[in-house]
Design a protein around this nucleic acid. Sequence first.
DNA 1: TATAATTATTTCGAATTCGAGATATTATTA
DNA 2: TAATAATATCTCGAATTCGAAATAATTATA
Lengths: 150, 150
Amino acid sequence: MSNKNVERDQDVSLKLFIVLSRAFEAIEKQIVKNVKEYGLNLTEFAVLELLFHKGDQPIQKVGQKILLASSSITYVIDKLENKSYLTRKACPTDRRVIYASITDEGKKLMEDIFPKHKEAMSKIMGGLTTHEKELVTEKLKKLGLYAQQL
Amino acid sequence: MSNKNVERDQDVSLKLFIVLSRAFEAIEKQIVKNVKEYGLNLTEFAVLELLFHKGDQPIQKVGQKILLASSSITYVIDKLENKSYLTRKACPTDRRVIYASITDEGKKLMEDIFPKHKEAMSKIMGGLTTHEKELVTEKLKKLGLYAQQL
DNA sequence: TATAATTATTTCGAATTCGAGATATTATTA
DNA sequence: TAATAATATCTCGAATTCGAAATAATTATA
């Protein structure tokens, strides 16, 4: 790449990061507002959604999928347990492992929230057409995977 | 839109949010790692960068541009002041206002960091071509502005 | 098999952010 | 002009996240 093109790519990259941050924060803020009405924060919602759709998970798996440090998961799981939306279940084959399991109450909540969440998501992302979203998703996947591998 | 298309757009939107989050977090993590080597976190870096490139700013303006609550800015400005990278300067015309002003030491730091930051940014975003970045930037801008307006 | 290394979860303290409210100042309006 | 509203900054306490280290259990190795 020529010097000029290197510089241009740097400027474009800086700008992309700003715009990416802003877009993410704007969307996140809307979603936070929505789930807050159900007394949940985004992390709690993500954990419940995972258990709701994927079934019981070892606590550590939850952390991996939600992208949270192990100490933070303990905290979130505690909170959801206090709210009676999940229970801890011992693993019969490996006594180190504890499963997080969504309760009936938790399921009921998600059956209520999730469809609304999907609708809200569509509205929040109304700035792009379905096709544009697919295009951006594909590019962002490349971008994210590359950055992750560094 | 048909029912089928509504559902498809919802699914695409959900997926886009996941991918957007992951990309943002992966990139952010790399940048955090870089600026950490200079003893800064991302917020502190953002504040210094703003003052470095745009000159003195009222504290409240800093918060607006960095997207931070007023109570949080006070905290960050305090930290940067303790590190001698900026000083507070009273506004002569409005005694409510306090300017944040980067020090010579702060400028020296940014003259060192910023070019490296630009290079790093290009590398971190190496998963896309310059042209793809521009395309994604344009779409994300639409996406973010729309979400912000809700 | 005993020892060492790995894995899962938790505890603890620190860092960062927020929202609500306090204070001081300036701008508006009745 | 006096009272009211708006603006800028800061203080405080709470929530969330992290990293390091503790504990317990399992797996690998010598």
